[in-house]
Design a protein around this nucleic acid. Structure first.
Lengths: 216, 216
DNA sequence: GTCAATATAAGTATAAATACCCATATACGA
DNA sequence: TCGTATATGGGTATTTATACTTATATTGAC
């Protein structure tokens, strides 16, 4: 990959960051042509002028942010490879960058080897997530789940009944299936609502799915 | 990494798959020691006997599935590197494998190079997601927001009411919010049930989530 | 052996959802 | 212009869910 020349744009509002990354990438890729944009609008113009192979796109930029710039750029050139690049704390925006169509996702704390891998991967038409970002995603899932166990204290029986409710059985049907009184199921269901902090079946199920209390 | 010897367990209920993967990995890693387990229980025993560096864990196994086996294994040995390995269609379980503590995530359709990368990454204490899996995750996020409206068989009003139901509002509350009669909401709700082929609210919401008719 | 949590069950009451029936108005495409 | 889909609303009835109350038996932890 390094043998072939290719064009790249760095879009970021911090000049020093752009210049430094420019220097690093020029060292790694001898045949690279790099252009720099200080905001989303400039970046769009540069894209139309130079038709780059890859864009390193900061999410937080003035005038036009990275998400909007990505959307507009991909409307014009759907095959453009865009790598999102942001700081800690912007992780929430990565979902939007995914929706917008970015293919690579880097944190600014990444080392240059990861930037290199990301560029190579997206040019080979593959996705790339930085390891730190993967770790954050994984931690988020695991953290959410630890939280869940803490807040969801369903008993085995409640869990069993919750799953039957989700399958669409009425309390009467559940009672027949479990060989217990319908009134018992009524009570379990009431306890489920209370523990799930739900007003009704709809909220119970939404919460159950949000917090992974059941298998979908 | 290949220079140092290390131990690995392949846990999968298909003998031919285990044997084939064993052969491939032995070729790639000259100093590898591979053991095979046909189910989760056997795998746990093997782990206790041989304290491996890495476990390639199938999710769908008899007796004790990969998720439970991962949980138990990590209770015993928290630093054990476990790579989840599954077929298409099991993607829903990856969240559970993340919760359980797996560090790598491969599809059985991966090529051997990815397996190699996954093993090297988890032994270097990094996460690894196969590219195909990343693509699925990304597609899922993008699909959720684009396709949803297109495939929805609901009218705009029905969609609106469906979303309010999911938020836990009663028909009366919805009618007040939309300035229409409760009876109209009753009727919309009945149409929603019919179109969703659901018997009740529980099934309606489960179907809505399964088919991405709503945003969670 | 006591305490706490759980599973069981019931009384009573209201609120909500579901299942049928029906009608009218509007909009949109063939 | 004619039909279809949609949104609106009502009548009536039954079923189901929800909200209070209380009670007993069992289990397991301390």
């Amino acid at each position: 990959m390094q043998k072939h020349s290719f064009d790249l744009i760095i879009a970021d509002d911090h000049k020093l960051f752009r210049n430094g990354l420019n220097m690093l990438l020029s060292t790694i890729f001898p045949h690279i042509t790099i252009r720099e944009a200080a905001n989303g609008t400039d970046c769009l113009e540069l894209i139309q002028e130079s038709r780059p192979d890859v864009v390193l796109m900061d999410i937080d930029m003035p005038e036009l942010n990275g998400i909007e710039a990505t959307q507009k750029a991909l409307q014009l050139y759907p095959d453009l490879n865009i790598i999102a690049l942001s700081m800690h704390g912007d992780e929430a925006y990565y979902f939007r960058m995914i929706e917008a169509g970015a293919k690579g996702f880097l944190l600014k704390s990444s080392d240059i080897e990861e930037v290199k891998s990301a560029i190579e991967n997206v040019m080979a038409n593959q996705y790339f997530f930085s390891n730190e970002l993967l770790k954050k995603m994984v931690d988020h899932i695991r953290f959410n789940n630890d939280e869940k166990v803490k807040t969801s204290v369903f008993s085995d029986r409640e869990q069993e009944i919750l799953e039957l409710i989700c399958k669409g059985f009425s309390n009467l049907e559940i009672s027949e299936r479990l060989f217990i009184s319908k009134r018992t199921v009524d009570k379990h269901r009431a306890n489920l609502l209370e523990k799930a902090e739900a007003r009704n079946t709809a909220q119970l199920i939404m919460n159950a799915i949000k917090h992974n209390w059941i298998n979908i």
